[in-house]
């Protein structure tokens, strides 16, 4: 996690966006390693596939379409103000953690509401060894349905934003001969 902190600082400082997106991929992979030691194997799996794989590719795709260098600027006053705001918010949050349950505490309230039932009964009720899967797909099926719809909507949104821009350009090139012909993507 210390490595993650250092990497986040590097992301904040480096202005070459290519290096930044590579670093953010490595950052995600380190995060995945952290999830493994914290027993969240499913989450680690997802993070490694998504964060280190897909989102890096998407960032690079964006950079190919836009520009690679970040412009210098912003000015010292702006970054000082930002730093002050961030420091204040961080201090408040750290003050908040003093009331948090200790790390790894087994009597923390989070472990005592519905979770004991999932752990004790899911073996009989659902019959799957992986509790995460049975909670994901069965007990909290509505949640997952919603998440699936969010992904669906996001993909549709990307299509609406970028797929259409291209079509308009092609229409202009077609010089009003083809009209509103449906483009491939």
């Amino acid at each position: 996690m210390l490595i993650m902190g250092l990497m986040a600082l590097a992301i904040a400082r480096i202005r070459d966006l290519f290096a930044v997106s590579m670093l953010s991929g490595i950052f995600s992979l380190t995060g995945a390693a952290a999830y493994v030691v914290l027993d969240a194997v499913d989450v680690a799996f997802t993070e490694a596939a998504v964060g280190a794989g897909i989102s890096t590719v998407l960032m690079l795709g964006t950079l190919a379409l836009t520009t690679r260098k970040e412009k210098l600027g912003g000015g010292r006053t702006k970054s000082t103000a930002a730093f002050l705001i961030v420091a204040a918010a961080g201090a408040v949050l750290i003050y908040g953690t003093f009331d948090m349950p200790r790390y790894g505490d087994r009597i923390a309230p989070i472990h005592h509401h519905v979770v004991p039932r999932y752990i004790e009964k899911s073996g009989e009720e659902v019959g799957l060894p992986n509790i995460v899967t049975s909670v994901l797909a069965s007990y909290r099926g509505y949640d997952t349905l919603g998440e699936t719809f969010v992904i669906f909507t996001a993909a549709t949104g990307v299509l609406a934003i970028l797929g259409r821009a291209r079509r308009r350009r092609e229409d202009e090139e077609a010089d009003e001969t083809g009209g509103g012909k449906e483009s491939a993507s």
Partner: peptide, 13 residues
């Protein structure tokens, strides 16, 4: 397991 489920979906979203 409950936070794992929440975060699993949150990552993909």
């Amino acid at each position: 397991p409950l936070p794992h489920v929440l975060i699993l979906t949150a990552i993909v979203v």
